[in-house]
Simulated assay, not measured.
Amino acid sequence: MIARSMQRNGLILAAFACAATLLVVITARLTAEPIARQQQQELLQVLNQVIAPNEHDNDLYQSCIRVRYEQLGPPPQAVYRATMNGEPVAAAMEVTAPNGYSGAIKLLVAVYTDGSVAGVRTLQHQETPGLGDKIEIRKNDWITSFDGREVRAEDDPRWAVKRDGGQFDQFTGATITPRAVVQAVERAVRVFKQHQQDWFRQPANCNEPVPSTVPEKAEP
């Protein structure tokens, strides 16, 4: 009697487990596409902030390539290319600053083909609220201080926070966060200037499977 009861209870638990698993799978499949669309719309909004819609006539999201440069952070990185009448205008790169105060900071850095910064936005971070989170455009306009800036071919001492002798403000009580962002943006600009011609020649490939290869190293 006891064995039969245990067997029956086991079957009931197994049935509940199977039903729960099936429900999770169905829910994931039903929500995957809406979530992906929402993420795409959010990314497009940020892209339109760093590269104005009137500055290009192509679909930035569809004109995307993956690149692999350790200077930009963990690979692969997405590069969204802007063109006007088929001519290169700018590109927005996903960049990671690994040395934030509370961990990695994910950025979107857009650069015009003349090497000047079109715009920078923070995509993700874990910096201290009220201090390091001023890298968010909705909290502070500090991130716009990169607009129009250029990086010299040689070592450029201007690309540092003022405490380190550079031209960028640091935050009161928080220097590590802006320092990390400044360094990451400078690296991104240098990589873009070195490789932009090749990037604009490549076919879009962000919808293809991610290859497993060793990251490329950009020249210093």
Rank of each mutant, 00 (worst) to 15 (best):
T122P: 02
V161A: 09
E127A: 05
Q45E: 14
E94T: 07
I35Y: 06
A104C: 05
D114R: 06
V117E: 06
V214Y: 10
R121Q: 08
L22T: 11
I12D: 03
E136R: 05
L44S: 12
G100F: 01
R4K: 15
R158C: 07
I35W: 06
D57A: 01
V79W: 10
R37P: 01
K193L: 12
T172R: 04
A20Y: 01
R68K: 03
V109S: 08
F146P: 08
G132T: 05
Q126W: 14
R190G: 03
Q183S: 11
N9D: 14
A104E: 03
A90D: 09
D198A: 13
R190S: 01
Q197F: 01
Y69D: 02
G10E: 10
Q202W: 09
F16D: 04
I176M: 02
I35A: 12
K217P: 12
P215V: 02
S63V: 08
Q77K: 00
V95K: 09
Q41I: 03
T31N: 02
Q62T: 11
T128A: 02
I143Y: 06
M1E: 15
D147H: 14
E208S: 12
Q71I: 03
R81L: 14
F168Y: 06
M1H: 15
E186N: 07
K139P: 01
R149N: 03
G166R: 13
S116N: 12
G119L: 06
P220E: 11
A180S: 06
L107I: 03
